[in-house]
Nucleic acid binder design. Structure first.
Lengths: 112, 112
DNA sequence: GATTTGGTTAGCCATAAGGCTAAGCAATCA
DNA sequence: TGATTGCTTAGCCTTATGGCTAACCAAATC
């Protein structure tokens, strides 16, 4: 599951792949359709799709000679959870600092 | 600020860097402290810190010979927002499909 | 049944990313 | 002031990543 997060962020780190995710948020699409707006060779694009699929963000199946790709519901959850978790701890800490500052006028948060 | 998202996900794509973020969520720390749990040479580790700092996730300043690093509040927001946005469109779509399915008995969208 | 179409596989190339050692430098400490 | 500590810089190496072309295969089409 830690490896899940790994490949998730990895997959989302590339602009082409994020664009594909955004496109797919509107609904499933064929490889060709997804490829069209991207100025790169199909094989190159296909590898991006593979990364997305390996990360679990996307799934696809082939009907005839057309492969249709769609988002996998819930796939973003892991990433969102991680981010939320960080922010939670963090915010709580900032609250504490804030409280502290109100007491001792710490206007230059020199740490540790 | 699309480039913001870019470097954000990029920064979070590496396990060492995510670990540093998790560590820093507990509070600011010196370079040495942050480095300790990681089995890699300091210079290597320093470059991870640089990536984090360049992405805006982290900031640091030097007092004497010690550099202290801390999280930048709100830095994760862009990433969270992007994820939330995708999920929103997506979920709405799935709702529509659900509705559709109730009408026409589309009971197996199972791919793979 | 030949040709197009949509995707796939294989292989090559250049750059980026992540790792290392060695050496340097400024602030402390003995 | 000399040694130690905490980082920093420079440079090198290896692998991963993102891009390409060429050739191929199977499903539609003509």
């Amino acid at each position: 599951m830690a490896n899940q997060i790994e490949s998730l962020f990895q997959a989302l780190a590339d602009p082409t792949r994020r664009a594909v995710v955004e496109h797919l948020a509107q609904g499933p699409a064929s490889v060709g359709t997804l490829h069209a707006p991207h100025a790169m060779a199909l094989p190159t694009f296909l590898r991006h799709l593979k990364v997305l699929e390996d990360s679990g963000l996307v799934q696809s199946r082939k009907a005839g000679r057309v492969r249709t790709v769609q988002l996998r519901p819930g796939a973003l959850a892991a990433a969102e959870d991680w981010l939320a978790a960080q922010r939670t701890v963090w915010d709580r800490r900032l609250d504490r600092l804030q409280t502290l500052a109100e007491h001792i006028e710490l206007n230059d948060p020199t740490p540790e």
